[in-house]
Amino acid sequence: MKFPSFEYACPASLADAVALLSEEGDAMVLAGGQSLMPILAFRLAAPRLLVDLKNVPGLDTIKISAEDVRLGARVRWCDIEKHTGLSAAQPLLAEAISHVAHYQIRNRGTVGGSIALADPAAEMPGIAVTCDAEIALTGKLGERVVPAAKFFLGAMETCIQPDEIITEVRLPLWPSDRCWAFKEFARRRGDFALAGVAVFYDVDANGCAANTHIGVIGASDRPCRLGSAEQIINGAFLDATVIEAAAEAASNEIEPMEDHHAPADYRCALVKTLLERALTRAMA
């Protein structure tokens, strides 16, 4: 499985990278390459040009501020794993990313690459959607910022234009007393999950849940929030009955894909189980 023939460019600035993408209509962006290279090896894509971002400055930083957490597009899974501040500033992210792939892949695979690939079972897009993240893109017309909820259009499908490059993922401020959990189920360690759920909520003055966010991966063609389950949690005092009701609602709300890894009804049951376990964990 040898790669198809392509040209390779390694621009030194974002502007140059965008210009290369604009000039060569049949180009793809290369960051860590951990998804792109298998795609090329199977010849599922055969671009004329690969634009490597490795020399583009500023894309590999993790910035934690009073307003948000900003992950540069070239931030790798191992960077998130080793970062000392993220487990406090964005614990849901840190937990979810600990499930991504394997050691060697984690040394190369990037936030931007995962967002751009838009695998429905991938953790990073799921966290972006769950957390109301914004995705910053730069193209020939300048920068635009797209809410994660509008970014993913389907399996392996996003709103990125051919001349655009993801530069940053912005995750909103995370209150330190927030309740949260991440649960996924994969066949083996590091595999894409058959399904996963990310959950957080805040506790109001009455001890009830508010601002509930429940995201699911692997259960439809793109990561999504589960509004019916969120509604049941919001304003409720969490107990086993509420959790059961929310999990049931989640299971009814999703319309999972069916493939050789798992039938649809199994995925429905799995999401229910995972959400029960996540909510139980979140309130503990």
Partner: peptide
């Protein structure tokens, strides 16, 4: 495997273990 699953091609680049089949 040449698609980044088996790990037989692992080399160490700048101190980090990397799949050399997924690196140009």
């Amino acid at each position: 495997c040449e698609h980044g699953v088996c790990g037989a091609c692992t080399v160490i680049i700048d101190g980090e273990a990397v799949r050399s089949c997924l690196t140009l």
